[in-house]
Design a protein around this nucleic acid. Structure first.
Ligand code: FES
Ligand code: FES
Lengths: 149, 149
DNA sequence: TCATTAAAAGATAAAAAGGTCTTTTAATAA
DNA sequence: TTATTAAAAGACCTTTTTATCTTTTAATGA
């Protein structure tokens, strides 16, 4: 479904939402270790997320990555769009074309309703709201050190 | 979402459902050209689909690929399972683990209902039924030679 | 049985995705 | 203004997926 890059991007952005703010910046290293994701790969990813205004950064001592209030108004789809683009969602499930009800593939009318509805849900909820839910209801950002019995 | 291999597998199996039967076998070449898919790649794929009992084949003159009545009772999920496996559907949307309501990731309760419902729809409809719908209602198996205006 | 036809098998090549490493730039605090 | 810190940038490597090519095997009809 999503590329690994996109998955890491969502997880790490939500991690920053939970643990960072303008006065508390976090280095790639700490984020990478916290959510158990390859450090140099995440570094690359963060560069792109900064360019895409999804997250913020400053260099130098006490520098690092963090989310501003504005960053927190973005939604999950913005993150995915910044990394993978939205083609994955717009394209035909069987790879024919731009998914199109005028020339539907055999599974088109099965898949299309789900796609639109899912897309909506990812668009309607801000990072801030996700963060709130994570801290209130407990959501997992990594399986690292988790006892799965 | 699906690998290209899976997409080709679904399309070509539905093509065989439409155009072949025990008395009318079709060569890879014809299928590949008809649905506009790379010939040698499809040949490899067909080998695997035959082993997985999704489609049937015979060698020699007048040989080729075709669907038996039994083949037609399989569903789309059987095809996908044979090529990609079902991990894509069982795994967590954010790549954490086997998707699990006990340790839900931040998007778990958004994604899970869709996943199950979509899975069900792909399991409930046989190739035969798809084929019927294709011939009755017109569904596109390729964009080759299609005038998209 | 023998030539022909078409799939099966397997080796190989190209492209894309995933991951790593090194050097450069900018911020800051001493 | 300088040493230090951490991100930015870019080059590079590995693995997986996608695609191709060649040889072998099996079925058939003459
Ligand atoms: S045309 Fe294939 S999913 Fe819409
Ligand atoms: S745990 Fe992530 S989708 Fe279920």
């Amino acid at each position: 479904m999503l590329s690994r890059a996109s998955k890491y991007a969502v997880l790490s952005t939500l991690f920053l939402a939970e643990h960072s703010n303008v006065d508390k910046k976090i280095s790639v290293k700490v984020v990478a270790e916290s959510i158990d994701v390859p450090n140099p790969f995440l570094a690359k990813l963060f560069q792109q997320l900064v360019r895409g205004k999804i997250i913020s950064s400053t260099k130098g001592p006490n520098g690092g990555f963090f989310l501003t209030e504005k960053n927190r108004q973005k939604n999950v789809l913005d993150i995915i769009e910044n990394i993978d683009g939205l083609n994955k969602f717009n394209d035909c499930f069987l790879g024919l074309n731009e998914c199109d009800s005028k020339n539907p593939c055999p599974v088109h009318f099965i898949v299309e309703p789900f796609k639109n509805s899912l897309l909506g849900k990812f668009r309607d909820k801000t990072i801030q709201e996700f963060s709130k839910e994570i801290s209130e209801n407990g959501r997992v950002l990594t399986l690292k050190g988790l006892d799965l019995s």
